[in-house]
Structures are given as C-alpha cells and as structure tokens.
C-alpha cells in the first residue's frame, strides 16, 4: 500500500505531530509525504530525512502558505490517484483538511485512530474515550486522522527520500487568510511535553494561575495546560485547553491542580503515565484516576511544593 502523509509545518520546519503520523503510516505501507506551503523547500529537505520515508511531494505556492483546506484538498485529491491512503495528524490543521479530502474522494474518513489493526481495520475512541470502537472500512481508498499520543515518533534522521515538485495552480478563490495570533512560549509544547502542570477553576483568577502554575512548571521544565473552565474564565488562552475538545496529551507526568476531573477533561489526559492531583475536595472525581493525590488547599500546597523542589 502507498500512503501519503500531510506534513505539518510553519513553512520553516516539520512539526513533531507529523513524526507520530509517519509511524502510523509505516504500519500500512510505503510512506510518501506531502509538503504543501509557500517558500517551504527547507521543510521538504527536512522531511526527506525522516526515517522510513520513500518520497516527498513538494507543492510550493503562495496560495498554500496558510494551509487553507479549500486550496490544499484538491491538490491532495490529485495526488491520491497514485496513493491508497491519506493520513493527517488529528490536530486542528489535519482535522480541517482531511474530511474535505475524504468527501471529494467519496470516502468515509476514519477519525483519530489509536491503532492500526490491519490494512482496513482501525481502533478509535468514541464518546470522549469512554468507549473504544474497532472499525473496518469498505472504501477502496483510506482517509485517516491519527492521534499522536498513540504512536511513537519516527526518527528525524536516517532517511534520504527524493523530493519531487508538484505543479498546478492552487488558489480556489474561496477563502483567504487574514491574521493569526499564535502564542509563543519558551516552554515545551503541550502535546509533546514529558511533564505538564495544568490548572483549573480552583485557581480563581489568571493572576493566581501565573503566580502559582508558572513557577512550578519552570522548576519541572514542564509545559502548562488548563481545564476548559479556566480557559472560559479567561485565566489563560484557548490553546492551553486539555480535553475532549482541546488537546489530547499523554505525558510521563500530568499534575492537575484545582481541576475537578470532569469526563471531558479526563478524555484529554487519562493516558498520561502518572497523574498527580492536588485538590481540596477529597471526593473530587480526579482522585478516582490519579496515581498520586494530595488533598490540600492549592494556595498553600503549590507554593510550598515549588519551593521544596
């Protein structure tokens, strides 16, 4: 089987999410990559070095700079004439593009897979991970999004794939990019961090969040996350949100502070290796899944913890 993996990038370098998706694609067959962007030759060169990659298709066009699905999907459909499966990461970029490709190919997409069980059989969580479904597709071509936390990362070196240019005009004229507010942070990225410190409504304010969570995260070299309640209350921006409708994370250690443990939040972090919870309510549902729990007032416990580390 020949697979085509959509590379996630910022026109400068390959994002880690792609490395997980390459691992999933390897389980299906030969791996080709698509780098679609503007002025992104460096990305293609980097992608060509990823272990296990046989070919890189490079589509370099100003209309592809911002990953608009209206412009990328038709390009993928053209390339799919020579491929059997299209895989994208289950990130906001992948989720935006893959279903558009699937519909154009008249294929029912398999979303958010956590295992490849065979050439046409996959495992995926449903109901916020409260149930796990094994599904078998009867479509001739496959369109799949991949949950990164379920697959290891392919090595960034070891490969020496050929880069082939894709031609053709890409502008559909349907949509245009206006602006982006992308948070920049010195901290590790949420979805690939080894340790995450996450804060919830229990913190009471954005000021408290930054006063308590940031120093602890700094001490641990951790990424920072939040519950939806904390995001809704404006303590932190939306890209901090962990959960069913936020980011799915699976770090070595997840520290939940002032988070009750609603099923929608658990859906995003319950595959973490070790879960630590600090909550003043000993009956909080988070303690039912936490490996290590501390029943305490976070306003005392967290500064003390930061100091003693």
């Amino acid at each position: 089987m020949k697979t085509l993996v959509l590379v996630e990038h910022d026109n400068a370098s390959v994002k880690d999410a792609t490395l997980h998706t390459v691992t999933a694609a390897t389980k299906l067959g030969e791996v080709h990559l698509l780098v679609a962007g503007a002025g992104c030759t460096a990305v293609a060169d980097e992608a060509a070095k990823i272990a296990g990659v046989a070919k890189v298709h490079l589509a370099d066009d100003p209309a592809l700079a911002n990953q608009l699905p209206e412009n990328i999907a038709p390009l993928v459909v053209t390339l799919m004439a020579g491929h059997d499966a299209f895989l994208a990461s289950a990130t906001t970029t992948g989720k935006n593009i893959a279903p558009r490709v699937a519909a154009l190919l008249d294929v029912m997409q398999v979303s958010d897979i956590i295992a490849v069980d065979g050439p046409d059989t996959f495992t995926r969580p449903i109901y916020a991970g409260n149930a796990i479904a094994r599904v078998k597709t009867s479509d001739k071509k496959l369109v799949i999004t991949v949950r990164g936390t379920a697959f290891g990362k392919a090595a960034r070196d070891g490969g020496s794939a050929a880069v082939e240019a894709v031609s053709g005009s890409a502008n559909s004229g349907l949509a245009s990019f206006v602006s982006a507010e992308i948070a920049s942070s010195e901290r590790p990225e949420l979805t690939s961090a080894k340790v995450i410190v996450s804060g919830g409504r229990g913190l009471g304010s954005g000021e408290n969040y930054h006063k308590l969570i940031d120093p602890l995260a700094d001490k641990l070299g951790a990424a920072v996350g939040a519950s939806r309640a904390a995001v809704d209350a404006g303590y932190v921006p939306n890209d901090y949100q962990v959960g069913q409708t936020g980011k799915i994370v699976a770090p070595d250690v997840y520290i939940a502070i002032g988070i009750s443990g609603a099923i929608q939040h658990l859906a995003g972090m319950k595959d973490s290796k070790t879960i630590i919870a600090i909550n003043k309510d000993e009956d909080a549902p988070i303690f039912q899944i936490a490996d290590i729990g501390l029943v305490a007032d976070l306003f005392q416990a967290v500064p003390e913890l930061t100091e003693k580390l």
């Binding site: 796990i132 599904v135 009867s138 319950k270 039912q288 936490a290 501390l294 913890l305």
Partner: peptide
C-alpha cells in the same frame, strides 16, 4: 462504509495512593 466490529470499555485506571503532605 465503516463496519463497527466491536465497542469495548477503555482500560480502567485504578485510583492510586494519597500522600499526606507536600
């Protein structure tokens, strides 16, 4: 187009221990 072969419960996480102090 998709046939659901099986729907199962996810592996359950066991509650762990509680520590008494920071």
């Amino acid at each position: 187009r998709l046939e659901t072969l099986a729907v199962t419960e996810p592996p359950k996480r066991q509650a762990g221990i509680k520590v008494a102090s920071v």
